[in-house]
Amino acid sequence: MADFTHDFPFDPGYDHTLQDLMEIPAPAGPDDFDAFWRARHAAARAVATEPEIGPLEEERDGVRIHGVTFTSVGGVRIGGWLALPAEGPAEHGFVIGHGYGGREAPGPDVPLPLPRSAAILPCVRGMKDRGLHPGIPDVSSAHVLHGIASRDTYVIGDCVADLWCAASALSELVPGLTPQEGGPGLGYHGESFGGGLGALALPWDDRFRAGQLTVPTFGNHPLRLTLRCIGSGEAVRGYREEHPEVTEVLPYFDAATAATRLELPVLVAAALFDPSVPPPGQFAVYNALAGERELRVMDAGHFEYEGTAADVAGLQAARSQFFGARLTR
């Protein structure tokens, strides 16, 4: 493990070796965990997403990038970007999640993992700048607490639904990508917040064929509540101090518990040092995966260091190889 100089008032490595991290389990979850998520998924699949493509905003790296909007659960219109091949038809499709804080542009998510691909890059509800919604905070420390008093109102469940509805919108705009239409199936990748949402979303949706999760959050909430950090988990830890009953809600939103149901091939990039998403939670997600899995160990997450550029480039190459081997006709 790299020895990073930092000024955090805690150890972002949490005194865990790689061997320690590889042994962290997932909570079993509530008895009705599966039923809860299957019902949420069914409700999202029933939404008429009515996607609308905006004007061309940018062309680069083999894709034309348009604005896009679509309807998600509760009638909420979600915005984001749609990337389409600059030439020829799309042969692969992706839903691409984002970190906490949202996205102001497609940024480093383009170039896409595979050439000749289409992708939808939504900003889930509450997140800037195309997911902003009245009444939902756009700051991660407040967003992560929105509706948390009940499993039925917690915003994280609706954000997962936004990803399912994004897949529906993509399928309507670019037919022929899903297995049901004779296509290779969709890929998903997301980082941090988007990684945790992906782990919660993928087990229930048979339109996806592979996923890649980078430093995923929401893993092993019982353990997460004991670990200091500077990310959204700290807000949840603080909330639990005054509202201990939240421990009855959080088990329904545990990414590691969901991973025990996730049988698709998944590549996880997990960090040994991370001040925002404690590594024990990240590795809990990887360790729990029920299907084919690959692990890429990063020196650090949410932290700039000398080897950041090389690690990011290595992950991008691994991601392309991973999806290339699994999203073929």
Rank of each mutant, 00 (worst) to 15 (best):
G147V: 03
H146R: 12
H146Q: 14
G79M: 06
A48L: 15
T17C: 09
R45L: 15
A271H: 03
E52N: 09
H66I: 02
D15V: 11
E234T: 13
R60H: 13
L114W: 10
T260M: 04
F303Y: 12
P175Y: 12
T308D: 04
S168A: 15
H41Y: 13
E248W: 01
D129E: 12
Q321S: 13
T17H: 08
M298E: 13
A235Q: 04
T257W: 01
Y154Q: 06
G54L: 13
A235K: 08
S168D: 14
G190K: 05
P184H: 08
R228L: 13
S141Y: 10
R237G: 12
L315I: 08
G219I: 03
F70S: 01
D162K: 03
G219F: 01
M1S: 15
P122M: 02
A83Q: 00
G324F: 09
G147R: 05
G102P: 06
V266G: 09
G80D: 04
P275V: 05
L289K: 01
E191K: 06
G195V: 08
E191P: 00
L200V: 06
V47Q: 07
G196K: 00
V68L: 12
Y14R: 08
D152P: 00
F253V: 03
I65C: 02
A256F: 05
T69M: 00
V236W: 00
E191R: 03
V155R: 05
A118C: 12
R116Q: 15
Y100Q: 02
E245F: 10
H221Y: 14
T328A: 14
V73D: 01
A269Y: 05
P25A: 13
D129N: 10
G88M: 11
P12H: 11
A142E: 15
A86C: 04
P265E: 04
L262R: 10
P55T: 06
S150K: 10
D61W: 01
I120N: 09
L186N: 06
A83N: 02
H6Y: 08
E58K: 13
V277Q: 02
S320A: 15
E294V: 12
A39Y: 11
W81M: 05
L114I: 14
A255N: 03
G101P: 13
I230H: 03
G185E: 05
